[in-house]
Design a protein around this nucleic acid. Sequence first.
DNA 1: TTCCTGTGAG
DNA 2: CTCACTGGAA
Length: 225
Amino acid sequence: MPKHLEAAPWLAVHDRLLAALGAQHWWPGETPFEVMVGAVLTQNTAWSNVERAIANLKAADALSVAAILRLGDGELAALIRPAGYFNVKTRRLKALCGFLERAGVGGDPVRLARGGRLPALRQRLLEVNGVGEETADSILLYALGLPSFVVDAYTRRIFARLGLIGGAETYAHIRRTFMDRLPPDPALYNEYHALIVALGKDFCRPKPRCASCPLVDLCPRRGLE
DNA sequence: TTCCTGTGAG
DNA sequence: CTCACTGGAA
């Protein structure tokens, strides 16, 4: 008999957020490869800056595995400059593209999803320099449509305030907490993470705006910070 | 823990 | 001016 997992609060938070904030239509990228590039560029970076970098790549006709591998480091760094950390992210984008190329999916990165089961594919992504857990899960979920829940700083902050996690758990532990309680539905994971980001940006900020938060009545820490 | 970096809100 | 931003590596 498996340990009973109380899923109701996690589903209730999703439903409340969806009703209050509406569908978020993530990821804001036009192709799976664009989503993968965005996942790297947005690391610790505001999305508005990532949009500029991606616009530069498009304008230079450089938004493909082959084009990025062909560019010199200096050229690529100049294009993604608005996204910050441009030297680090130049190496990371090249590592990602090199991986896709070696995997034989350079011309059609969505075919990466056919390379075995989710845990094995996730492990292969984690071996790529610059792809950590959140980036790997973002690629799996938003580029490939696979049911891998994305945990980020907002998730940790929001669910700690809600009292549903402690807040100091590892990434893997929090991810499992969600995945053990939600059906493995990519559309649900997609919407849920997007809603979490929206709440974290607009309401459950470092200094929270509890008065207008759609979750106030669910939150034991409302008004305490 | 520290470093990596541009951008915009406050 | 300071802070936060859909982190990850060394």
